[in-house]
């Protein structure tokens, strides 16, 4: 089994084996970017440029960027690039996010959380 090559990016938290995640969503966001690139929806360079721009913008807005917000920028870049590439419409993304939140609120603890209806 091989995993797609994931060139290390400057500032990415990690150790000698690769990236390290603080929370599950970080790994999911990481995997989405890697898989979208592997599937040819954007190049890894395009990804790095978008991420770099997000990090710069966040720094300009006052984020000390100590690594703990790295995946916040990663997610922002993912949202931006999927919109720019026409993969996901931002409005769809926002309504889906709210639908998931509602699904969690409506689901008893311990039961699988599922969306009621697909918009």
């Amino acid at each position: 089994m091989s995993t797609p090559a994931t060139p290390a990016l400057p500032g990415q938290p990690g150790d000698e084996a690769g990236p390290v995640f603080r929370e599950p969503w970080e790994a999911q966001a990481f995997a989405l970017a890697v898989e979208l690139s592997a599937a040819g929806h954007f190049t890894w360079n395009e990804w790095a440029e978008t991420l770099g721009a997000e990090i710069k913008a966040a720094q300009a807005a006052g984020d000390p960027d100590l690594g703990d917000t790295y995946y916040h920028h990663w997610l922002a870049a993912l949202e931006r690039l999927t919109a720019e590439k026409g993969l996901v419409v931002p409005d769809d993304r926002r309504s889906r996010r709210d639908a998931w939140e509602q699904a969690y609120r409506d689901t008893p603890h311990g039961r699988p959380v599922e969306l009621k209806k697909r918009p």
């Binding site: 989405l32 993304r93 996010r97």
Partner: peptide, 8 residues
């Protein structure tokens, strides 16, 4: 953040 990832 997790909800946004889940949505995507």
């Amino acid at each position: 953040l997790a909800l946004r990832v889940k949505a995507l």
